[in-house]
Amino acid sequence: MDNFPDDQARVTRRLQRDVAQAQGSAARRPPLLEASAGWIFTDRATPPTPATGKTHIYSQGGRLWASSTAGAVPLLLPDFPQADYVPNPGSFIVSSAPGSYNPGWGQDLRDAVANLHSTVTAALNAFKASGQMDSF
């Protein structure tokens, strides 16, 4: 039995026409991504689940996603929370311990330790408020 019962020239003309139509319509369709200077993905709806063993990578809401039979998961981790700014405690100006009791030196040391305590407390509170550290 002949697999091509039609005239070969007619089959060839139809194939040429179909290829020309496909090439013409492909040029009018906007690309889904650009790669000349890095890849730029166009956001789209979640695609149908691909066949087993295949993964579909796409962009949605400005984030990259991967879809497979295991489900859809984001490819990039979310931004880590940022804690509030905690100022530098500054320099400690406490001279060497005097040979005898000196209330001024003791007060300078107390102020330096209190300043350091305040800074550490502010840092701990900032970490707790941003969710980076559990309260204890």
Rank of each mutant, 00 (worst) to 15 (best):
D2G: 04
D2R: 13
D2S: 13
D2H: 05
N3S: 05
N3G: 00
F4V: 10
P5Q: 06
D6F: 07
D7C: 05
A9V: 13
A9Q: 14
R10W: 08
V11G: 09
V11Y: 04
T12F: 13
R13S: 07
R13W: 03
R14G: 05
R14K: 11
Q16K: 12
V19I: 15
A20H: 04
Q21S: 08
A22Q: 14
A22E: 11
Q23W: 00
G24H: 09
S25W: 06
S25K: 12
A26N: 13
A26C: 03
A27P: 01
A27R: 15
R29V: 14
P30A: 14
P31Y: 02
P31M: 07
L32T: 10
L32I: 07
L33I: 02
L33H: 13
E34T: 15
E34Q: 12
S36V: 14
A37Q: 08
G38I: 11
W39C: 09
I40G: 11
F41D: 06
T42G: 04
D43H: 06
T46G: 02
P47E: 10
P48G: 13
T49C: 12
A51P: 04
T52P: 12
T52F: 12
K54V: 14
T55E: 10
T55H: 11
H56V: 07
H56M: 10
H56F: 14
S59I: 05
G61A: 08
R63F: 11
L64Q: 14
L64R: 15
A66F: 00
S68R: 02
S68V: 10
A70T: 11
G71F: 05
G71V: 09
A72G: 01
A72S: 15
A72H: 12
V73G: 00
V73A: 13
P74K: 07
L75C: 12
L77T: 09
Q82N: 02
Q82Y: 00
Q82M: 03
D84Q: 13
V86W: 02
P87T: 11
N88W: 15
N88F: 14
G90F: 03
I93V: 13
I93H: 08
V94Y: 01
V94M: 09
S95A: 15
S96W: 03
A97I: 08
A97L: 10
G99F: 08
G99M: 09
S100K: 13
S100E: 14
Y101G: 01
Y101C: 01
N102W: 06
P103E: 04
G104K: 02
W105F: 04
G106M: 06
G106C: 08
Q107H: 04
L109F: 04
L109M: 13
R110G: 02
D111K: 08
A112D: 03
V113C: 02
A114P: 01
H117A: 15
S118P: 00
T119Q: 07
V120M: 11
A123C: 03
A123K: 09
A123L: 10
L124N: 11
L124A: 12
N125Q: 13
N125A: 15
N125D: 14
A126C: 09
K128Y: 04
A129N: 07
A129E: 04
A129F: 04
G131D: 07
M133N: 03
D134Y: 06
S135L: 05
S135C: 00
F136R: 09
F136T: 05
